[in-house]
Design a protein around this nucleic acid. Structure first.
Lengths: 136, 136
DNA sequence: AATGTAAATCGTAATGATTATGAATTAGAA
DNA sequence: TTCTAATTCATAATCATTACGATTTACATT
C-alpha cells in the first residue's frame, strides 16, 4: 500500500483530505514497522501541538476499516502499520528488538481446515515473535 | 490441570492456601472456557463483597507465572483458562459464540523454523476463531 | 494453643489506553 | 463565495489494569 493509493481509497469512500491525515499516512509510509497511537501523537504534536488522541484513534479506525492499515495487539497495546502490498494472504515475523516485520508466506490454515469438520472458521491469528537477523 | 495439582504447585512455591484462591481455582476448574478478570469478580463478589481487582489480578498473574493458567488476549481484554493437561505443545480453536475451546494438535512452527535463517524465534501465537460445531 | 511474621487481602486511588462529547473549524461541493 | 457535512479541538469519561498503605490471615515455630 502506498500513500497515493490510500488517498484514492479515502476519496472513493467520501473522506476528506486533511493535513492531519496527510501526516499520519506519511508516518506510516516512511516505516514498515508497527506504530502505536502514542508513537504517532508524540511525533505529530511537533507540527500540531493541539492534536488530540481523538483525531489519532478516529483516523486509525477509519484506515483499518478501509484496509489501508493493518492492526495487531502487542503488550496490551494496539499497533498499526501500512497494509502489505502482497496480494496473497500471509503472516508476520515481528522483531521485538527493532520492530522490523518480515512476511511469512506460509499459512497454517491451508493444511488445517480439513481437520476441523463442522467448525466454522471465521478468522485466525498467526504471528511469530523474536529477534531478526540484524538484532540476533 | 486439575485443582489438586494447582495447589501442589502453589505449595511448592511457597504460596498460601486462601479462600479467595480456592474460589478462583474452582471457577476455572468448572469450565474449559476463557474467563476475564471481570467474569471472575462478578461471581466472587457474591461470596466476598469486599473482593477487589487487586486480589483477582494478583492471583491471575501468579497462576500464569506458575503455569496453572494460560492467557490470551481477546477484544482488548486479557482472558484466562486452566492450562491444558496435554503435555505436548498445541494451539486453540476458540468459539466466539459460546467460548468453547478445542485443541489443535498441529503447530505451524515445526515446518517453519527452517524458513527463518538467522532469525531467533522466541515465541509465537496461533489461534483460530469461529463457531464450534454446536454453534455453527 | 499462643505467638510472630511474611504473605495476602481490602479499600481505594492512580495509571494508561481508548472512546466520547459538544463546540469550533475546515474541506470541498454547489 | 457560500453552505454543509466532515473533521478537529479541548477536554472529560470510561474501561482495564496496576499500585499503595493499612489491615488481616495462613502457617511455621515456640
Amino acid at each position: 500500500m502506498n500513500i497515493t493509493r490510500a488517498w484514492e481509497i479515502l476519496k472513493e469512500n467520501g473522506f476528506k483530505k486533511t493535513d492531519k491525515r496527510e501526516l499520519i499516512l506519511t508516518m506510516f509510509g516512511e516505516t514498515e514497522k508497527y506504530l502505536t497511537a502514542r508513537d504517532l501523537l508524540s511525533v505529530l504534536k511537533k507540527d500540531f501541538p493541539g492534536m488530540s488522541y481523538d483525531t489519532i484513534y478516529r483516523n486509525l479506525s477509519t484506515f483499518v476499516d478501509l484496509g489501508i492499515l493493518e492492526e495487531t495487539e502487542l503488550n496490551g497495546e494496539r499497533n498499526f502499520r501500512m497494509q502489505c502490498e502482497s496480494e496473497h494472504h500471509h503472516h508476520h515475523f515481528i522483531c521485538m528488538e527493532c520492530g522490523n516485520v518480515k512476511e511469512i508466506e506460509i499459512c497454517p490454515m491451508e493444511m488445517l481446515s480439513e481437520r476441523l469438520p463442522g467448525y466454522e472458521v471465521e478468522s485466525h491469528k498467526f504471528e511469530i515473535y523474536g529477534k531478526c537477523s540484524s538484532c540476533a
